[in-house]
Amino acid sequence: MSKLKIAIQKSGRLSENSLRLIQECGIKIPNGGGKLITESTNFPVEILFLRDDDIPQYVEQKVADIGIIGENVLIETRKNLVVIQKLGFSACRLSLAVAKEVDYKDLSYFNGKKVATSYPSILEDYFQENNIKATIEFISGSVEIATGIGLADGICDIVSSGSTLFSNGLKEVEKVLSSQAVLVAAEKLDSEKQQILDKLLFRIRSVQKAKESKYILLNAPNQNLERIIKILPGMNSPTILPLAQEGWSSLHSVISEDKFWDIIEELKGAGAEGILVVPIEKMIL
C-alpha cells in the first residue's frame, strides 16, 4: 500500500508545530528517537525529518511527496513548488534592522550600504522593487552579529518577537515579508497518494476551522430569542432547547474567534445569561 511521504523540519519550533498538527489530525507518530524517517501507526504516511532549507529540494525531486516549510524558505529557494494549504502557525516576518543608535529615516538609508542576510534572493528582489542600490552579504547563520563586528551596516533576518534584535543592539526598521508555515507539493500525485493527501487535508482543515471557532451555550428569555438568533448566525442556525423554567430557552451555536468579544457584548445586551464558551477540538463541515 502506498504511503504519503511528508518532509518536516527535524528540530525547532516549526518541527514542534508540524508534529502537533499531525497529532491533532489523529495521526499517531511513534517517538523517532533520532531517526530521520518514521511511519504512522494508524495512517498511511511516512515522516521525513530534514533541515528546513533542504525540504524544498527533496519535494521538488519527489523524494518527499509534500513538505511543511515556512513561506520565507519557499520563496528564497525558488523551487518549482505550489502551496496546497496555508497552516496558520509559525508566523514570523523577514525584516530589515539597523543599530539602535542609527538615525533611520526611510528605506533610502540602505543606498550604498552593506546588508547581511540569509535570504539574499528575497532581499535582492525587495531592493530592486524599491530602487535601492545596496550590497548584500550572504551569511548562513548568526546574522544579528553582522553590524556589531563591522561586516554590514544593517541586517535582514527573521523576526518573531524582536527580542533577539534588541539583545544584539538592533532595531527593526522595515518589514520585507510576512511568513507562516505552508504545506507544499511539486506536482499532482498519483491517484492513490492523492487520495491520502485529500484525507489529510480534510483533517487539517477540520482542525484549523475548530481553532477559528468557539462553541457557545446560553440561556435567554423566549421574548428575546428572535433578537439573539440574529446575533448568532452560527453554521446554519442556533439550536434552541426549552428550559425547565417556563419562558426560557437554551441556545447552542458556533461563533467565529475573531468576532467573539463583540458578539458576547451584544448577547449580554440582548438579555442572554449564563453564557458558556467552550473550545472546539474538531469541526467537520
Rank of each mutant, 00 (worst) to 15 (best):
D103K: 15
T41L: 11
C92I: 11
G88R: 13
F49Y: 14
K28E: 14
T77F: 14
P30A: 13
N42V: 03
R93W: 04
P44V: 09
E71T: 14
T38K: 00
P56W: 12
P44T: 06
G33C: 12
D54M: 04
A91W: 02
Q61Y: 00
R51H: 11
L48Q: 06
L36E: 11
D52N: 09
N72F: 11
A91F: 10
I27C: 01
G67R: 04
F89P: 05
K35Q: 12
L50T: 00
I66Q: 05
D54I: 00
F49Q: 00
I68V: 13
F89H: 12
G88D: 08
E76P: 06
G88F: 02
K62F: 12
R51G: 14
N72Q: 13
K35H: 11
A91Y: 06
F49W: 04
P44A: 03
D65R: 09
V63C: 00
K62N: 15
L96M: 01
I55D: 04
I37L: 13
I69P: 10
G67V: 02
L74I: 02
K86R: 15
V98F: 02
S95L: 01
Q61P: 02
I29G: 03
Q61V: 02
L74M: 10
L96I: 06
N31V: 11
G26A: 06
D103P: 03
A99K: 13
F49N: 05
F89K: 09
A99T: 06
E76T: 07
V102T: 15
N80P: 03
L87Y: 07
E71F: 09
I47R: 06
K35C: 08
D53N: 09
E39Q: 14
Q85R: 15
S90M: 10
V83C: 03
A91C: 08
R51P: 12
A64N: 05
E46F: 03
D65N: 03
V63F: 06
E39Y: 10
